[in-house]
């Protein structure tokens, strides 16, 4: 699914996250990179250094926005001021699609700055989908929601995570940012088969794929984005691209960040695993 209506009919290839540690290298050396993903919140400011750097990046590269604070799953309505700031940034970057997480994280105006898991209920899916539709209508750009890594499951859940994701994106008529590392992490934490997850989501809605590393603890796995991608995640990635086709892919590396070259090299490994598409039949 290289180009579809959920990623603005683009075919972006393999990108990496734009991080402060790499600014110097990118601005001076201007390395060849298919695209950069930015964290929207870091650039939702009135001016100053973040926007100066972003403008210089935009002169040379394609940029896609990824958010961490829309909290579609929180009970509170969307914040209009937040949306206005986000839309200003959308106009600046020309992002062909925009992503955020399928989670909640704020309550009564207080932010946890975490991606908290949701109870997988029809009621939650309806509320979440309504907010995604509102955001999409206001921002006038396709939205893709990302599955998160989780460490807890709720008694209240009425369906599996992939069924819930499907319920939300079909009600919202939005795209999916399929994070195969998050699928792997959650599959180990909650004892399910990650292939069931891949087979269970509406693959035609996948706008983008995330890959990343994580940290293995004795009793659980934590999504830390501070390691290279492990082989089982690459295998899942291969499976995902076999189902969806070559899809815009991004490597996330957010802590203990190595050199730009090392991060980019790790991202480009994805080329070895990309399948031409539809080779693995959906069962």
């Amino acid at each position: 699914m290289p180009a579809n209506r959920f990623n603005g009919f683009t075919d972006y290839g393999i990108g990496i996250g734009l991080r402060v540690a790499h600014y110097g290298h990118i601005l001076c050396r201007k390395p060849v990179v298919d695209w950069f993903e930015i964290i929207s919140e870091n650039f939702m400011v009135d001016g100053g250094r973040p926007l100066e750097v972003l403008d210089r990046i935009l002169e040379q590269y394609r940029v896609v926005q990824h958010g961490v604070s829309m909290y579609f799953g929180s009970a509170a309505p969307l914040n209009r001021e937040h949306l206005k700031r986000l839309k200003r940034l959308v106009k600046r970057t020309g992002t062909p699609w925009l992503s955020d997480h399928l989670c909640w994280g704020s309550v009564d105006g207080r932010y946890t700055h975490d991606l908290l898991p949701m109870p997988y209920t029809v009621a939650a899916a309806k509320t979440t989908a309504r907010k995604i539709r509102q955001a999409q209508d206001f921002l006038e750009v396709p939205i893709a929601v990302e599955n998160v890594s989780s460490y807890a499951e709720f008694h209240a859940s009425e369906m599996s995570e992939w069924e819930f994701l499907t319920e939300v994106v079909e009600r919202a008529d939005c795209g999916i940012l399929l994070d195969v590392n998050n699928i792997y992490v959650s599959s180990r934490n909650h004892d399910f088969d990650p292939v069931d997850y891949l087979n269970g989501v509406p693959i035609e809605r996948v706008a983008q794929i995330h890959i990343a590393g994580h940290s293995q603890y004795r009793k659980y796995i934590l999504d830390t984005h501070d390691h290279p991608v492990i082989d089982p995640v690459w295998k899942l990635y291969a499976r995902a691209t076999a189902l969806a086709g070559p899809t815009a892919t991004l490597l996330e590396w957010d802590a203990q960040i190595p050199s730009f070259k090392e991060v980019h090299r790790e991202a480009l490994k994805a080329k070895r695993f990309i399948q031409p598409g539809r080779e693995v039949a959906r069962v």
Binding site: A152, F154, H155, A156, N189, D191
Partner: peptide, 12 residues
């Protein structure tokens, strides 16, 4: 325990 399921390795 009222809202989080335990699993084989971790309590609620």
């Amino acid at each position: 325990g009222e809202f989080i399921k335990p699993n084989k390795r971790l309590t609620s």
